[in-house]
């Protein structure tokens, strides 16, 4: 493997990314936000498309209350029954949030606002908005629009799509 293309030229740098956030747990939402913010930091254009439970990240009533999944998450190395004990998810979430604060990773509400301030565009998925009976008023004001899958693909044209 080499970094050189077949003609010997260096590969073209990435100019645009469109990131899909489809999960509503803490560990489901953060990777996409970090990728989006990181793209903007490198001067890469970034769109973020929130779909299904990923919508919680931009839902103004819910984005402060996103929890880490403690059941069905083998990465935590916690027995399934222990993960289901009331309060465990809140505890793990608080612990992770504290560790992230130390690394200067913002809480979700601040993070999505920061991405928008950085020039990243936030979109809600129309199918999910309809499915959950939501409207634009349920979202933080930084959300640009509720768009269809077709509009997402149009917007993503010429860039990379990242699904999380």
């Amino acid at each position: 493997m080499t970094e050189q293309g077949t003609n010997g030229a260096k590969p073209e740098p990435i100019e645009k990314v469109s990131i899909i956030v489809s999960k509503g747990s803490l560990e489901g939402i953060y990777p996409g936000l970090i990728m989006a913010n990181g793209a903007r930091m490198e001067g890469i254009e970034a769109n973020v498309f929130f779909t299904f439970f990923g919508l919680d990240a931009i839902n103004k009533a819910k984005n402060e209350h996103v929890k880490a999944a403690t059941v069905g998450n083998p990465g935590l190395h916690l027995a399934t029954w222990a993960g289901a004990v009331p309060g465990v998810s809140a505890l793990v979430t608080r612990k992770l949030a504290g560790e992230m604060e130390k690394l200067d990773i913002p809480p979700i509400p601040e993070f999505v606002e920061m991405i928008s301030d950085s020039g990243g565009a936030l979109y809600a998925c129309k199918a999910s908005v309809d499915l959950f009976g939501l409207s634009e008023d349920d979202f933080i004001p930084q959300v640009e629009d509720v768009i269809t899958v077709g509009e997402f693909y149009e917007m993503a044209a010429g860039g990379q799509i990242i699904f999380t």
């Binding site: 903007r40 001067g43 301030d117 950085s118």
Partner: peptide
């Protein structure tokens, strides 16, 4: 964005293509 006195939006206007770098 929090401590320099210049908010994030303006940082990206002042230093396009990635303010921190």
């Amino acid at each position: 964005g929090k401590a320099s006195g210049v908010p994030i939006k303006e940082l990206y206007d002042l230093f396009p293509k990635g303010p921190a770098k």
